[in-house]
């Protein structure tokens, strides 16, 4: 208990040193930390040279709200820590064979997801996320368009994606999903025959790994039936900025930040994907391989 508080205090102090604001000023300021992390800039646009102090939105009202939220979060974290792993009893955590991480039953479940498409880079695809029939599933639909934006630099276009939002704990520290007790990702989906890619983002150890993603494919059959898709975590391969890497590593299952789906099969036209839930399971049938990709040192 004491260790937890100390740990929190340590991280708390460290994370604000990084951002260059003192502990007391931190909560008063918004817009500073939540700057977009992406370094992508559309070709032809000028770099955003607004100084940092101009983007700061200082107000005591913010500070009060923020402190209230953060204290609530830290209280929840302490209580959860006393209860057991992830706020559940230890026995429950030990015997669980399956876990539903995301399900889609109301608008609040959808708010935890971000939908994006190549409209960000100037493309013409569209993607929307709504609740399905009878509020029982999420419906991701839209149109894929592979027209390349005419900016002279971009050479390929045409993707739509959906990603869960990053989780933040008390005092803006990262929250991870710990899936290390499971070995399979279990999805219940209904697609329209298009192949999708499942992306998992883990916390980067070094900042130059911030574009690393673990990917694998998902092939919904299409048709009127729901289907269950199981993907073992070992199958996920490492890619960075859309390129498969030569050196493959096992995913760190205790440091998972987000999960997402991407469509980019170069077929122009409407698409749709319905997702019932996204869960995890301990698949006893999948015990064979530890890692399917070669790990020996290759000829440099």
């Amino acid at each position: 208990m004491m260790a937890l508080v100390l740990n929190r205090a340590f991280i708390f102090s460290r994370c604000h040193q990084q951002n260059g604001i003192s502990i007391l000023l931190g909560p008063c300021v918004t817009g500073f930390i939540s700057r977009p992390y992406s370094t992508y800039r559309r070709p032809g646009t000028k770099p955003d040279n607004t100084p940092h102090w101009k983007t700061i939105n200082f107000s005591f009202q913010n500070a009060a709200d923020e402190m209230k939220k953060r204290l609530g979060l830290i209280k929840k974290e302490i209580v959860d820590h006393c209860k057991g792993p992830e706020g559940r009893s230890f026995v429950e955590w030990m015997v669980e064979q399956t876990r539903v991480v995301w399900e889609f039953r109301n608008q609040k479940d959808l708010d935890g997801w971000v939908v994006s498409s190549d409209a960000e880079i100037g493309g013409k695809s569209e993607a929307y996320l709504t609740l399905g029939k009878n509020n029982q599933s999420a419906l991701l639909y839209g149109t894929l368009n592979t027209d390349v934006p005419r900016d002279g630099e971009t050479r390929r276009s045409g993707y739509c994606s959906m990603r869960s939002k990053l989780q933040w704990g008390a005092f803006n520290q990262k929250n991870f999903y710990d899936w290390s007790t499971f070995n399979t990702l279990h999805l219940r989906v209904r697609g329209d025959g298009r192949p999708w890619m499942v992306n998992i983002y883990t916390d980067p150890y070094y900042s130059h790994q911030k574009d690393d993603l673990y990917n694998y494919f998902m092939y919904p059959r299409g048709g009127p039936y729901w289907e269950e898709i199981k993907i073992p975590f070992s199958k996920f391969f490492l890619s960075s900025r859309g390129r498969i890497q030569d050196n493959q590593y096992l995913m760190w299952l205790d440091k998972i930040r987000t999960l997402g789906f991407t469509l980019g099969d170069k077929a122009d036209g409407p698409f749709q994907l319905e997702i019932d839930f996204i869960g995890l399971s301990k698949d006893g049938a999948y015990t064979g391989e530890e890692f399917p990709y070669e790990q020996y040192k290759r000829n440099p």
Partner: peptide
């Protein structure tokens, strides 16, 4: 118990 704790569509 390999069932998922969720309601089927």
């Amino acid at each position: 118990d390999m069932e998922f704790d969720t309601d089927e569509v």
